[in-house]
């Protein structure tokens, strides 16, 4: 009696997990499958599950129909500066908040965490007005500059991490005549490499996936990033579905490669950010 119950539970567990995994994977596989088909084949009933004629041409057409290579270059440009800005600013801020004792730091920490509760979209219109005043609409500035001012999620994460490094390290360095910037660069940075990797990876993901920012701030097609570039394939008159799916696949490819090459950082970033809230 006990044993059959056990086996039943195990079978049920695997059944749930496997069907969950299938549900997660099928849409993605369907995306890749559709990216290799002609629009004609996609609109045939009964549905063709595996295309007989694989059409790699879709992937070439992605680059000829719209300036997709330019979208790619723009995205990489914006992402690079965002990562750079996030790495410097958040480490500086987190160091100041955790390892120097001065009045007001607790308040600043709380204020920073408080911004996590603000719905980001509420600020978008005033930010648009603000950047319009600065005369920087249709440039990359609004998409890059804010990254140099720290991000509450990263600050929180790095603070948690820096608290685990003994203070004696800093003190010993002071004995040798070091100052704060030197300590951050020479002592803290090497120790914080895993946490910095998490910051870099998540900033990459945030910026790569950002849709609303580019939508508001960029007007010229030449300046589009991938996220809004994909939309240029969709039109009310004619949507080249196969090419659109190829463009979508090309957009997620770097993310998938990054994920599989740095999986442990993804997991540790998620759990650090999600648990200690």
């Amino acid at each position: 009696m006990m044993k059959t119950r056990r086996t039943g539970a195990v079978v049920l567990t695997y059944l749930c997990l496997v069907s969950g995994a299938i549900c997660c994977l099928i849409p993605l596989l369907w995306l890749v499958r559709s990216s290799l088909m002609s629009t004609e084949d996609m609109f045939k009933l009964p549905l063709i599950f595996f295309p007989k004629k694989i059409r790699f041409q879709n992937y070439a057409e992605v680059f000829t129909m719209v300036p997709f290579a330019k979208f790619y270059a723009n995205t990489i440009f914006v992402v690079t500066f965002n990562i750079f800005g996030a790495l410097i600013s958040n480490l500086m801020i987190a160091y100041g908040l955790t390892r120097i004792e001065f009045k007001g730091r607790k308040l600043m920490f709380s204020l920073s965490i408080g911004t996590l509760m603000l719905p980001a979209y509420v600020q978008l219109i005033p930010l648009f007005i603000e950047w319009n005043w600065f005369g920087k609409i249709n440039t990359f500035f609004p998409l890059i500059v804010p990254a140099f001012f720290g991000n509450a999620f990263f600050i929180f994460m790095l603070c948690q991490f820096l608290r685990t490094i003994p203070r004696d390290f800093d003190e010993a360095a002071f004995m040798d005549g070091a100052n704060y910037p030197l300590i951050i660069a020479k002592i803290i940075l090497p120790l914080a490499k895993p946490a910095m990797a998490v910051v870099a990876i998540f900033q990459f993901m945030f910026t790569w996936n950002d849709f609303m920012g580019p939508l508001l701030f960029l007007n010229d097609r030449e300046k589009f990033t991938l996220a809004i570039g994909i939309r240029t394939f969709i039109s009310t008159y004619y949507t080249p579905w196969g090419v659109l799916m190829a463009a979508a696949t090309l957009t997620i490819l770097p993310l998938i490669v990054l994920f599989f090459s740095a999986q442990k950082f993804f997991i540790s970033g998620l759990t650090l950010g999600g648990i200690k809230g």
Binding site: S89, G104, R105, M108, I125, P126, F149, G150
Partner: peptide, 28 residues
């Protein structure tokens, strides 16, 4: 000096909160 360094290091945060949070919300 410690206080000074503290504020220097967290100055991006202070500026950021002003420029990208407080000011936009006031403006809004």
């Amino acid at each position: 000096r410690q206080t000074l360094w503290g504020w220097i290091l967290i100055s991006p945060l202070c500026l950021g909160l002003t420029l990208w949070v407080a000011f936009p919300m006031g403006l809004s």
